[in-house]
Amino acid sequence: MLELRLVQGSLLKKVLESIKDLVNDANFDCSSTGFSLQAMDSSHVALVSLLLRSEGFEHYRCDRNLSMGMNLGNMSKMLKCAGNDDIITIKADDGGDTVTFMFESPTQDKIADFEMKLMDIDSEHLGIPDAEYHSIVRMPSSEFQRICKDLSTIGDTVVISVTKEGVKFSTAGDIGTANIVLRQNTTVDKPEDAIVIEMNEPVSLSFALRYMNSFTKATPLSDTVTISLSSELPVVVEYKVAEMGYIRYYLAPKIEE
């Protein structure tokens, strides 16, 4: 038996909007730790890792570990039927082939049940090693979204370089080139507006902008985004999900031919 009650149901709606264009089908895993997902895009270039910790739910019952295969497009269709202020409860029976989403309006005058068919998904679970990153950049998520959008009108690859001068986002295309440099700025009124650059070693890596743009669908979840870079590893683009967890996107770099 599984029953997860999330008072801030809009978080789950936003989570789905953040991953449904990257991944078609995925297994949601439920354990005493929380509600989680790990999935790759169909090209196996990007990986998304979601965790919503059990403590973040008002009620969290998961009698035994359960993996539920869902089509994210269909799940998104159902969650779009929930109001932004609704409380969302996810319910499933052990061994069952459906999951139920229950939406309660804040005043309890409307209660809706949506039952969705589960599917068998044979997915590979990858071990993600803990890593020390060469450089970590924290910046406003809206600024990162703007940069990715702007650069993708010029080119299809972004080079992200971190030096002691700051972080540089560069691209090149048929019509020309673009460089955007951000310097560390912590003298801001609101902490979420800060640009914090932690550089242990300079690093420069190339990534497909198409994926970066897809990751920025998570912008409504968090005011800030953290970008962790190491020359030997996929970049990690992380958005916190309120106080209860995170969405981390891993993107394999483009390498020299």
Partner: peptide, 14 residues
Amino acid sequence: MGLQSRISEYFNGD
């Protein structure tokens, strides 16, 4: 501009 690498080149299956 470079060859696209894959996630499995960096992370192993459990």
